[in-house]
């Protein structure tokens, strides 16, 4: 039968897979771990007070005890970036987590119940999809006046449709399989089937989209902070630091380069880790 050929093929691929040492995944994991440490203890790790001004050392290149130099007001850049990690990362994390909870639930419910529920969920996703996300965020925040948690809420709403659609399509495959029929036949309730039977089987997709949502929100947050929306300008964050550095690029280029590199490295690590996690989890089902 072809089934043995297929399982042998899967096995061959699995062996292939295990032989490849995921160096990239390890590095990405370490990067994200370091970022998380900064989120938790950034202020404590900072070598100097991030808001201590020193007009004499304004916009200095690295040196004089300032590893990455100083900004316009003479504040230590390294300290500002370390303590700014919290406001730069927590918001995106909340966005991703919220997407996961609401989006995955709605997506799975749409796939499972079908009919009116599915249509409602889909139209909601379509509607939000049709909006030019960042533009809407700018308008809303401009009108409402910004604020950290309002930014989180807006970004959350705008990234929902991706999560809904991906989870819905992954769940659509699962709800047609006989094990879901079997669960219904036994008399298990709909929500229990959704969370206990469907969710574990679409976990690879859920985990991967969580990290992708995080990346999207991280970049979105930085962009809004850069524009002066979202994070209040006085508080340190990667996006605001990047914006401040623009005018001082000749005096201290590190003021712009360092936050940009931080954003890129964090975002790439999360993307690659999500990719690897997806593959790993998807394989887990085929192994004993």
């Amino acid at each position: 039968m072809t089934s043995d050929v297929r399982s042998d093929q899967a096995e061959g691929a699995a062996i292939d897979h295990l032989q490849r040492v995921p160096v990239v995944a390890v590095i990405c994991g370490l990067v994200l771990l370091a970022v998380l440490v900064c989120v938790v203890a950034g202020g404590w790790l900072a070598p100097q007070d991030p808001s201590a001004q020193n007009p004499l050392l304004s916009a200095m290149a690295p040196g004089h005890g300032h590893l990455l130099g100083t900004d316009e007001l003479g504040r230590d850049v390294l300290s500002r970036l370390l303590s700014g990690a919290r406001s730069s990362v927590v918001g995106p994390l909340v966005v991703a987590a919220g997407c996961l909870l609401i989006g995955a639930t709605l997506g799975m419910a749409g796939a499972y119940f079908g009919g009116v529920v599915d249509t409602a969920v889909n139209r909601l996703a379509d509607m939000v999809y049709a909006l030019p996300a960042l533009l809407i965020a700018i308008v809303v925040l401009g009108v409402v006046g910004g604020g950290y948690w309002i930014t989180v809420a807006v970004l959350l709403l705008l990234s929902l449709p991706y999560e809904i659609r991906l989870c819905r399509s992954a769940a659509m495959v699962e709800v047609r399989l006989p094990y879901v029929d079997a669960a219904r036949t036994i008399g298990i309730s709909a929500w229990r089937i959704i969370f206990r039977h469907v969710l574990p089987n679409i976990l690879p997709t859920v985990v991967a989209t969580f990290l992708l949502d995080f990346v999207g929100a991280l970049v979105g947050f930085a962009a809004l902070s850069y524009l002066g929306l979202g994070v209040p300008p006085s508080s340190p964050s990667w996006g605001t630091t990047l914006a401040e550095g623009q005018s001082l690029i000749t005096q201290n280029p590190w003021l712009s380069i360092a936050p940009a590199v931080l954003i890129i490295v964090t975002a790439s690590s999360a993307t690659l880790l999500g990719d690897w996690g997806h593959e790993l989890l998807a394989h887990a089902g085929t192994q004993r």
């Binding site: 036949t185 298990i188 039977h197 089987n201």
Partner: peptide
């Protein structure tokens, strides 16, 4: 619930009628 108690089914394809993510014990205990 009464109806579910009266009639139960064994499906055709045992490769897809068991949830691959749950252990046999969990499936039965449920």
């Amino acid at each position: 619930r009464q109806a579910r108690r009266i009639v139960q089914a064994v499906f055709q394809d045992p490769y897809t009628s068991l949830n691959p993510a749950l252990s046999i014990g969990t499936t039965l205990r449920e």
